[in-house]
């Protein structure tokens, strides 16, 4: 407890808040970071896809840069960001609209992480095999 300017006591660390500290805060930080990353990828992705309007050669040239191993790892990270943002977005909706949402927000964060792990176990091996099995031509 500390004396504030009004002369009353305020706790140094507010207890039981949704957005300060621990799962509530870190889920929010991750949501922001993944959101910004996805937004910038979206700008690039619309521009690269627009190459279909120039010529088949132009599109194939730009899309082939997505097929090298380093970009393959980048795509895995991008999908990881999208899957987290999607599942945590559902958690946010439940916090807002479900009567017990705020009570279970911490549990729901770990459910989000669990579902994220399961989804990425389904996605990453398949995608990385697609990317790396063709390295060096073919």
């Amino acid at each position: 407890m500390a004396i504030n300017t009004a002369g009353t006591m305020t706790p140094k660390r507010p207890a039981g808040t949704l957005y300060r500290g621990r799962e509530g805060m870190w889920s929010w930080v991750l949501h922001r970071i993944t959101g910004v990353a996805i937004f910038f990828f979206l700008l690039v992705h619309i521009l690269d896809t627009s190459m279909v309007r120039i010529s088949p050669e132009a599109y194939n040239a730009v899309i082939s840069t997505y097929q090298n191993p380093i970009m393959g790892l980048g795509e895995t990270a991008l999908v990881a960001a999208i899957v987290y943002h999607a599942f945590n977005g559902i958690r946010i909706i439940l916090i807002d609209l479900w009567s017990k949402g705020a009570k279970y927000q911490r549990v729901m964060f770990w459910v989000v992480i669990g579902l994220w792990v399961v989804t990425m176990l389904g996605f990453a091996p398949r995608h990385l095999i697609n990317v790396f099995s063709h390295v060096g031509g073919a």
């Binding site: 279909v52 194939n60 899309i63 393959g72 999607a86 996605f123």
Partner: peptide
């Protein structure tokens, strides 16, 4: 968007040869 983007990723990256099959055709 969850439905649309998960569907987009599934069809473009997981079906067949995934990203290796993406070209103009």
């Amino acid at each position: 968007l969850l439905v649309l983007i998960f569907g987009h990723l599934f069809v473009n990256l997981l079906v067949g040869d995934g990203i290796k099959a993406i070209d103009f055709a």
